[in-house]
């Protein structure tokens, strides 16, 4: 039987742009160009490798986000995913991680899955908890933050490196996996891949399709409120010297002045 893989990808504002907030203190997604979160490219890559090593597999990429988020899906399709699902609804604006996990979990169940693959964190919110929440909601094992992953005989195994130790993990499918940027460089879409992606199906779903009420998501459904956001004052550029043999001494004097030595 075919291995059904769903990859969750997020469309995020470019980190090298001037990111900021809207008047409602939500992430400003208008004034900075968006792209497929680089950390989710690793998820797509690992899903492709898992599919390649399986007898028969189908990869669906899933995103929740505004219309532009379709770009993230196209990129994943051009890398080699088979089809895409885009959850888009005006009521989703301002949704927090709990709402996002509800929407994605419902969509994943609707699509049908054996394996869900996520990135380690989104490059805008950087919470890194959505995969764990998906596992909690779906009631399946979470096998997260893997720097190595493989699937065989209905079991997913992988290595999770943390501060204190490196752990080998194992769980039966269905399961939710997330992979880190140590899992291996993502491939570039080939020209053929880009052309093929144009013909791959993208299904659009709204909240009604997922039987979710507007109140459960969006700003109103969020369980946290941002009181204020202040731009950190830019660091003032200090003294810069050019080393002509004295650089180390000058630096040492500076460190001594500040009582570091």
């Amino acid at each position: 039987m075919s291995l059904r893989i769903v990859v969750c990808v997020k469309y995020v504002p470019d980190a090298t742009g001037d990111r900021g907030f809207t008047d409602e203190l939500t992430t400003d997604r208008e004034s900075v160009d968006g792209l497929l979160s680089e950390l989710d490219e690793y998820a797509v890559e690992q899903a492709l490798q898992i599919a390649e090593s399986a007898d028969d597999a189908e990869i669906t990429v899933l995103t929740m986000g505004p219309e532009d988020a379709g770009d993230a899906l196209r990129k994943a399709l051009s890398m080699g995913a088979d089809k895409a699902v885009h959850v888009e609804d005006d009521d989703l604006h301002g949704t927090d991680v709990f709402g996002t996990s509800l929407v994605l979990a419902r969509a994943i169940e609707k699509v049908g899955y054996d394996l869900v693959v996520c990135g380690m964190a989104s490059t805008d919110g950087v919470m890194g908890v959505l995969p764990a929440l998906l596992a909690e909601r779906l009631g399946v094992p979470q096998v997260t933050l893997l720097s190595e992953v493989s699937v065989a005989d209905g079991t997913v195994t992988g290595r999770r490196d943390n501060d204190a130790a490196s752990e080998e993990l194992s769980a039966s499918l269905p399961a939710v996996v997330s992979v880190t940027d140590q899992s291996g460089e993502a491939r570039y879409p080939s020209f053929k891949g880009i052309m093929a992606a144009k013909k791959k199906p993208v299904e659009t779903l709204d909240l009604e399709d997922l039987e979710i009420e507007a109140e459960q998501v969006g700003l109103a459904g969020a369980w946290t409120a941002v009181e204020d956001a202040t731009e950190r004052p830019a660091r003032t550029k200090g003294e810069i010297v050019t080393d002509e043999g004295e650089g180390a001494k000058q630096l040492a004097s500076f460190l001594a002045e500040r009582k570091f030595i």
Binding site: A234, R235, K237, G238, E239, I240, V241, T242, D243, G247, A248, Q250, L251, F254, R258
Partner: peptide
């Protein structure tokens, strides 16, 4: 260098 309190422009293998 935009962030530093003190910066040395030089070869790290020397400095």
């Amino acid at each position: 260098f935009d962030l530093v309190d003190f910066g040395v422009v030089g070869d790290l293998f020397q400095v």
